[in-house]
Nucleic acid binder design. Structure first.
Lengths: 111, 111
DNA sequence: CAAATATACATAAGATTCTTAAGTATTTGC
DNA sequence: GCAAATACTTAAGAATCTTATGTATATTTG
């Protein structure tokens, strides 16, 4: 587990990219996928996840559809066209940022 | 320039590593170095920088010494032993985090 | 030489984003 | 049947950033 201050600023990017890869996902599924894919190193908390999903929806990057499973309701999220563009932009920006940070944090690698 | 939410969580790491590389630096010098080394892509704001330096000092990771330049006073910061350990830890943690995020953001690279 | 720009630090108000916590309810496994 | 897992929501508080303001000295430039 990381000192989660690192997660700040990358949560939206993670969510968008997962949706881009998987088509559609619901909140709980996202937490499990992230836990699995990162070998427990990143564990999303509900208090961060759900408000962020709502924000993405409010910003028009995702839409949601409710699906009843028995008496329970799952809320699936999927990317809008605007969301697809945003995903590419944000992922690129992240890797660019990392490259830039390497100039500061690891001068040997950037020679 | 990046959507600065990415900077969150990495500012302390940047400051510590710069001090580790350069021995000692003062605030304004840090802003200029970062601007230069990142080709203007990262520009630290004073409102973020100075409180963070104060925090690092309060946490015992750096000490400061004031140096008079004419009538003006520069405040140099330098790492404590505790700060040196923290620098290594934080830089390692950052690169580990990036590696983990690649599992999520760029599945092709992690095969 | 006056005005603009650069150097240098500090801090407060507000915004954003996270953690922690509490609440509600259904389903599965033992 | 009871614990754990599934599933979503929201509120209070903490942390970290931006924007803005304040103060002051030094240098550059027209």
């Amino acid at each position: 587990m990381y000192s989660t201050e690192l997660l700040k600023g990358t949560l939206k990017t993670i969510l968008l990219k997962l949706l881009a890869n998987q088509g559609k996902m619901y909140g709980y599924e996202i937490t499990q996928q992230v836990k699995l894919l990162t070998a427990d190193k990143i564990q999303l908390t509900e208090g961060a996840l759900y408000p962020t999903l709502h924000k993405l929806e409010a910003d028009g990057l995702v839409t949601s559809e409710k699906v009843s499973i028995g008496k329970r309701v799952r809320k699936y999220y999927l990317l809008t066209p605007k969301g697809k563009t945003a995903t590419t932009d944000k992922v690129n920006e992240f890797f660019d940022f990392v490259k830039t940070l390497q100039l500061l944090l690891d001068p040997d690698l950037s020679r």
